[in-house]
Structure formats: C-alpha cells, structure tokens
C-alpha cells in the first residue's frame, strides 16, 4: 500500500503530572485502525510511562499504564526506549511493564529521522 506512512509517537513526559501521556495513548489506539506503520518512542521522562507497579488509587486518577500491555492486541509492537533516558532515571528493562527495544541515543535519532509524521504531546 502506497499510502502507508510512518507515524511515530514521541513520549517525553511523565504520566499523571499532566494528561499528555494518557491522551497520547488514546491517539495511538485510534491510529492502529488506520493501518499505518506506528512506532512509539519513550525518551526522557516519557520512560516513566512504562514503569511497572503504578498505583494511582491514592491520587484518584485512572491507572492507564495497563493499556500499554494491550497495544500488542492492536498490532502495535514497535516500542522503543532510549537507553540513556532509562539509565538516567535509575531504571532497567526489568522495571518496564512491556517488552521494548532499547536503543542508544543515536539509534533513536536515526529512527526519528526516518519518520513521515512525528506526533508529540
């Protein structure tokens, strides 16, 4: 199909402090229905979106982190985490609630360069 574009969602903000992560995820789910080439990048504080063990009961907000686990069911399987961002936050792959591909900064940059549409929120 010639009209398939490469869409990348760049997540650079932590969840819960602002609504960006949650509403970004809502766009990702809709994009899945359009048969595009979808990637998700988690950079900087965005890696916190994938942290295991989020408990939001105490702040009375929706714990949407479980939705990342459901992405596979929507055929969204390209999840990339920047290694430097993860390490700078004291996290390892074991702390993340889904399988991701860990990339170096430069690999992440090269992947961004290839995209047609980069959505950031």
């Amino acid at each position: 199909m010639s009209d398939v574009k490469k869409f990348m969602f760049v997540n650079r903000k932590a969840p819960h402090g602002t609504i960006y992560a949650l509403e970004s995820l809502e766009v990702v789910l809709i994009t899945a229905a359009f048969d595009q080439d979808v990637s998700l990048a988690f950079v900087d504080d965005g890696v916190f979106q994938l942290k295991k063990g989020q408990q939001t009961k105490g702040i009375e907000t929706k714990n949407f982190s479980t939705t990342y686990r459901a992405l596979e069911g929507y055929d969204i399987e390209k999840l990339y985490v920047e290694k430097e961002s993860m390490e700078a936050r004291g996290l390892t792959e074991d702390d993340l609630l889904v399988d991701v591909t860990v990339l170096s900064s430069k690999e992440m940059g090269a992947l961004m360069d290839e995209q047609d549409v980069v959505l950031s929120f």
Binding site: D3, K5, F7, V27, I30, T31, A33, F34, Q36, D116, V117, L119
Partner: peptide
C-alpha cells in the same frame, strides 16, 4: 481519526 487522517 481526523488527526490521523490529517497526518496521512
């Protein structure tokens, strides 16, 4: 979907 369509 209108946003995705705009992207396409």
């Amino acid at each position: 979907g209108q946003l995705v369509e705009a992207g396409i």
